[in-house]
């Protein structure tokens, strides 16, 4: 997106989430059109109308279920117009304790955070490589940087997603397709309401939106929404395993 006046269509996978909507609003404010994809898109009509009215752009809704692998080809083919920028914010935290006991719950978390987002972004990458242009943004997580006792089912799936994006970027780097990995850190959303999160490490959804826009405009590869998270994770990943395994982070 070197030409700032060129307006693209941005597809948000996970368009219902606060982070997804915040990213959409930031791109809408720049004059880009949006497609919001969600499992139950009709209920997003007020958001659709609001974003379209505030920014005088087109916003479309479309049905998408990240766990429905069969439908993915059809979903990608049916999108009109084809999006120049595809952002996936899909994820599912789950309950770590439940994920430890219940393989069905754990499978849901693994598929929602890794398998589904990786497969759909991979399909979009195929099209973009053929067109020699396009941008893929995967919202992964700092939890994927190192497995921890408190959320390793979720974290391992995010680690898989991060590795997938890294490989995809490597493959696409010389083919005109940009791949961005975004690691938000803590975000103040309804999901984290009531949690005792450190203010300096917690971003508002709008900050995630701004970070994604900046990363896309500047052609960045991997971004932490709050730069301090880069430092925090460098320290956490540097701790030798024999000490790390005894910590309670």
């Amino acid at each position: 997106m070197t030409d700032a006046t060129r307006k693209s269509t941005v597809l948000i996978l996970g368009g219902r989430s606060e982070i997804g909507l915040a990213i959409g609003r930031v791109f809408a404010a720049e004059g880009h059109n949006l497609i919001l994809a969600a499992r139950d898109p009709e209920s997003l009509e007020p958001e659709r109308a609001d974003i379209a009215l505030r920014h005088d752009i087109e916003v479309k809704l479309t049905q998408f279920d990240v766990l429905d692998t069969e439908s993915m080809h059809g979903f990608v083919e049916a999108l009109d117009p084809a999006p120049e920028i595809v952002v996936s914010v899909i994820g599912l935290m789950g309950e770590q304790a439940e994920n430890e006991r219940d393989p069905i719950a754990a499978t849901q978390v693994m598929r929602s955070n890794y398998e589904g987002p990786a497969l759909i972004l991979g399909l979009f990458a195929e099209r973009m490589v053929a067109a020699k242009k396009g941008t893929i943004v995967g919202v992964s997580s700092v939890a994927g940087d190192r497995g921890r006792a408190s959320n390793y089912v979720y974290g391992s799936a995010k680690a898989g997603f991060t590795a997938f994006l890294s490989g995809l970027r490597n493959r696409c780097a010389r083919l005109g397709v940009q791949v961005v990995t975004v690691k938000p850190g803590f975000v103040a959303t309804r999901m984290t309401e009531g949690m005792d999160l450190p203010a300096a490490l917690t971003a508002a959804p709008e900050e995630v939106g701004q970070a994604v826009l900046r990363a896309v405009e500047r052609g960045r590869d991997v971004v932490y929404v709050r730069p301090v998270w880069g430092l925090v994770m460098r320290i956490i990943t540097a701790i030798p395993e024999r000490f790390f395994k005894r910590t309670d982070l």
Binding site: P46, A49, D50, L53, R54
Partner: peptide, 15 residues
């Protein structure tokens, strides 16, 4: 949320 706008009448429906 802003819900609808009619440029023919200038009517804005909003929350």
């Amino acid at each position: 949320r802003m819900l609808a706008f009619d440029p023919a009448t200038g009517q804005l429906v909003a929350e």
